[in-house]
Design a protein around this nucleic acid. Structure first.
Lengths: 113, 113
DNA sequence: CCGGTTCATGGTGGCGTGGCCATGCCGCCA
DNA sequence: TGGCGGCATGGCCACGCCACCATGAACCGG
């Protein structure tokens, strides 16, 4: 019996699972929300004001982040507080920032040339 | 003159720039491609076979990654080789993986309960 | 020069995403 | 208990994404 040699490091399903998480991060308002709750939970009304969109829109963004397992919520009275569920997002910021820095450098070089 | 207090850590434009990078990562085929070229450049025909989609589809995925500044290309004869432009993507994997691990743990706890 | 290979691009259709509005549910308080 | 504030959900619409097909440009080999 021959074991089929795996041509990719992971299965398609694993890449799909990762892409779901990445997709949840792929919106400026959701990144802003993550930044806002990085140093303490906030309720929906606070986040709505920060984002500057409709309350229902913000609520849906929060549902997406929660569905992806990136944030968690806690209900207290009539309010819902959201907080990050994973602390490692800092590493993600640095990665994206390094991409942006490299892009900027390349642009500057292209202009100067 | 009063300096307006910034309510968010960064400007909307900065979050948009970050979201563009995150969006480029938010597709399983693109993640597979990044993994495939992590240890050496590959041409489009190789990646097409790995992804298992149409050649034009793969070519568009590569254009998206290049546009985001995540990969770079090198033309040699009739072939085009792509390679990662940033080495720090490893940290990103670990972050996403930790989210997935936490999700799995939560699911197991929910089932066991 | 000609056929084949490699890759990029435009077109098109289906489907998901994201915005707002309206509405409903729930907890609080007078 | 009735009104109010906080939040989630469904409906709707516009837009964007992503798949494929077809085509064209560039290069190589004969």
């Amino acid at each position: 019996m021959v074991i089929a040699r795996r041509r990719t490091k992971y299965s398609k399903l694993q890449y799909q699972a990762r892409a779901r998480v990445a997709k949840a991060l792929a919106h400026p308002s959701r990144l802003l929300i993550l930044d806002a709750i990085a140093d303490g939970e906030k309720c929906v009304c606070e986040l709505t004001e920060l984002v500057g969109a409709d309350q229902s829109t913000v609520s849906k963004h929060l549902a997406i982040l929660k569905q992806a397992g990136i944030i968690d919520d806690r209900k207290e009275g009539s309010k819902t507080f959201y907080r990050p569920r994973i602390c490692c997002l800092q590493g993600l910021w640095e990665c994206i920032e390094s991409v942006l820095r490299e892009n900027l450098k390349a642009q500057q070089k292209a202009i100067g040339q």
